[in-house]
């Protein structure tokens, strides 16, 4: 033991007199604890300022009075990447929150995943663009109301050199056939999003099974996929809003547009409150009403004009889907 005592000479008095063990060496530990305690305090301060109902007041021109306080302010909106990447919901949600007092939690994924959340009752309201899946969703009793909000269109984009020679083709199916015949690289979303569903439907309608040698599924959102296609000098199908919003960072040209089958229609769906006791049915109705409200529709029609010189979405509240196709 003598040897050990020699190795740790200071130990004896530490054990013997624990009251004196507050050496400055402890300052380190104390400081770390103090630092983390300070964080805790920050957390309390921050959460009390972050959680309450109305967040930052919307920068609207009309000075609105204090927003009302709904009984259940938390509203989960499940929407698609195109509404986020285009920036539209960043504009609309603050206005909705200011008007109604709801606190929206927007969750963005492909339309397929967005509807899967609705189907499980994990979301209160959906803003999606996959009409075929939406009809199945409604028939399954997962939604109680589905209203047309707006549309834009899908476009074929690809390298300016256009090795498949589809530029100027007005028929989407002809373009698909040319792409398959020339076997140029084509990138698919591959994520069951609205865009993905439309693209798969076009291949089916054209009677083509894309070949793995030139057809690639990326599993990415639209903005990211555009960059992949651009880097690979490949073709893809995109909604026009995301393309315009990303035009500066990709080298892809619009090659095919205008076919009625390329219409991209957005609906707002209120999730059936019977799916879960936690669903905010009133909030869902308020959001759906807001999306088709004339004032909101006017905002949609103007959105993007300043930045892109053209609107990204066309408001359609009250119209029927059939009426849009003939436009």
């Amino acid at each position: 033991m003598k040897v050990a005592l020699h190795v740790y000479p200071r130990l004896q008095h530490r054990v013997g007199r624990p009251s004196e063990s507050r050496h400055i060496g402890f300052l380190g530990t104390t400081l770390v604890v103090a630092f983390l305690m300070a964080l805790t305090l920050l957390m309390v301060g921050c959460s009390s300022s972050a959680t309450p109902v109305p967040l930052t007041p919307a920068p609207t021109a009309t000075a609105t009075p204090m927003p009302p306080k709904p009984a259940n302010p938390e509203l989960i909106l499940s929407s698609t990447t195109s509404t986020r990447d285009s920036g539209l919901l960043d504009v609309l949600i603050p206005i909705f929150q200011q008007k109604t007092g709801y606190q929206v939690k927007p969750i963005y994924s492909g339309s397929g995943a967005a509807m899967a959340l609705g189907q499980k009752g994990e979301a209160d309201v959906l803003l999606v663009h996959a009409p075929d899946s939406e009809v199945t969703f409604m028939q399954g009793g997962y939604g109680i109301s589905r209203r047309l909000v707006m549309h834009n269109d899908f476009i074929f984009v690809g390298p300016a050199s256009d090795p498949a020679g589809i530029k100027g083709t007005t028929s989407a199916l002809d373009a698909m056939k040319k792409l398959a015949a020339t076997e140029v690289p084509f990138y698919s979303r591959g994520d069951d999003s609205g865009t993905d569903q439309l693209e798969k439907k076009l291949w089916r309608t054209a009677g083509i099974t894309p070949d793995r040698a030139w057809y690639f599924e990326a599993g990415l959102g639209m903005g990211d996929l555009l960059r992949v296609a651009s880097e690979k000098a490949a073709y893809t199908i995109t909604d026009r809003a995301t393309y315009l919003a990303n035009q500066k960072t990709v080298s892809l040209d619009v090659l095919v547009q205008g076919d009625p089958s390329l219409l991209n229609v957005y609906h707002v769906i209120q999730v059936n409150p019977q799916l879960s006791t936690l669903i905010n049915a009133e909030g869902a109705r308020a959001f759906a009403d807001f999306m088709v409200d004339p004032a909101t529709q006017l905002l949609i029609s103007k959105f993007g004009v300043d930045t892109y010189g053209q609107p990204l979405f066309f408001p359609d509240a009250g119209k029927t889907e059939a009426g849009l196709g003939s436009k």
């Binding site: 986020r84 927007p106 990415l220």
Partner: peptide, 19 residues
């Protein structure tokens, strides 16, 4: 979610995917 759960890493991902 902006103003609620957006932290540095998630906003880096989101901004990069917006271009």
């Amino acid at each position: 979610i902006s103003g609620q759960t957006r932290v540095l890493t998630t906003s880096i991902v989101a901004e990069a995917s917006r271009g």
